[in-house]
Amino acid sequence: MFLPENGLILGTGGANSLAALEEAVVASETTLVTVALRRVDAAGPGLLPMLDRLGVRVLPNTAGCYTSGDAVKTAQMAREAFETDLIKLEVIGDERTLLPDGVELLKAAEILVADGFTVLPYTSDDPILARRLADAGCAAVMPAGSPIGSGLGISNPHHIELIVQGVDVPVVLDAGIGTASDAALAMELGCDAVLIASAITRSDDPAAMAAAMRHAVTAGRLARAAGRIPRRFHALASTQDDGIAEW
């Protein structure tokens, strides 16, 4: 299984320094972190050696791609660079929302699946598109809770639940998580993992937030497995009336 056992994938974008990022990776206890692919002069040194030293696996992404063609090329470069078939497939629709372009995304997913990749698409919270991606052979689907970096949490929990019910592959809540309760909610809704970057890397204390997210994911997963009580419109006493004193 490519997903970390603890259900937390760390995105490496947004960290102030490699040292802060390293502390966050350690505190998250994850085994899988995302990386982007950029020209060597712009990328800066040290990231990959640090991740190798920590023994975490790399999940390359196609961040910054707006067409299926660009995303496919980037994925092929990532496979060559990191010797992994895993790819977080991102095909963005516009700069303002950074939301996925579903048409280009599905096209790229089909090409990459046929080319032997383990495709993890960053998708919208549309249950039908998620199903189409799963049907196309994607190894998981990664719906956005809300736009990347927004910290708005899960805007449409019902759609996330529908996605969980509608596909047979793992569901990873990707994008939009702002704080620990959002991560717990994702797991309570039935997601198999969450992918968090900004909420950790751009917090005041990334290592502390990474630990908070780790605990939240565990709590949400345990709560989901335990089975929450149904919601009701009126109270249901938890203390029996039998034996109550008469005054």
Partner: peptide
């Protein structure tokens, strides 16, 4: 020629 490597990114 494009020569690419790992960069921080979510």
């Amino acid at each position: 020629i494009e020569v690419l490597t790992a960069a921080q990114g979510g």
